[in-house]
């Protein structure tokens, strides 16, 4: 997989398949990006499991916090890594010891570890790096379009409402590519090159 640019079908496939997501490094503070993403995905119907050794035994948004992946007493479909890039490798190594193995490893916006990605892909897992599942869900469901964000999708098909309410949309939406954002992608690569 080319980790600079993912086809929408790849991202949609992962988010449409996984049901249980363990978020490693979630903050209990309600103004942190990890908390935002956790809450958003919980409200979109995912089973969300918080992993943070500093919060062991406590609840975040009603979900019991575990110290490490191995402590989770149920299968995990996806591990979402909310830690700095250098911590991604041991987390992936730990994820690969789980039985059954997760289907996907997701590293958050600004998190990228190519060695960890190679290891996971060699074990048959799908990998996404430097993306936020909340933003990707919002983009592919079209919810993010309400904020004037370029979803980079086009469609002549209706968006699908998700369950109750009118301001939640499902991922079951047919799209093709929309407006490209090459400049921001270039700027991000320049930033990474500068580090």
């Amino acid at each position: 997989m080319n980790h600079d640019s993912y086809p929408d079908s790849y991202i949609r496939g992962i988010l449409n398949t996984v049901k249980t997501i363990a978020m490693v490094g979630i903050s209990p503070k309600d103004n942190r990006p990890s908390y935002f993403a956790f809450k958003y995905l919980l409200e979109r119907g995912y089973r969300m499991i918080p992993v943070n050794p500093g919060q062991t035994g406590k609840d975040i948004l009603g979900q019991k916090v575990y110290a490490k992946l191995a402590d989770i007493p149920e299968p995990v479909d996806m591990v979402d890594i909310f830690r700095a890039s250098q911590f991604a490798l041991p987390i992936v190594q730990e994820a690969l010891t789980l039985t059954p193995k997760p289907q996907a490893i997701w590293m958050q916006l600004t998190v990228r570890n190519d060695e960890a990605a190679r290891l996971a892909e060699a074990a048959g897992l799908k990998v996404v790096m430097n993306r936020c599942p909340k933003i990707e869900y919002g983009r592919l469901s079209s919810e993010i379009s309400w904020m004037g964000v370029n979803s980079r999708t086009l469609t002549s098909k209706k968006a699908q409402l998700m369950g109750k309410g009118v301001q939640r949309m499902s991922l079951n939406r047919t799209t093709m590519s929309g407006g490209a954002t090459d400049a921001t992608d270039r700027a991000q690569r320049d930033e990474e090159g500068g580090h």
Partner: peptide
Amino acid sequence: EERVAALEGGTAG
């Protein structure tokens, strides 16, 4: 907003 952002090659409008 999304229309003009897409035409300009921006991330949001």
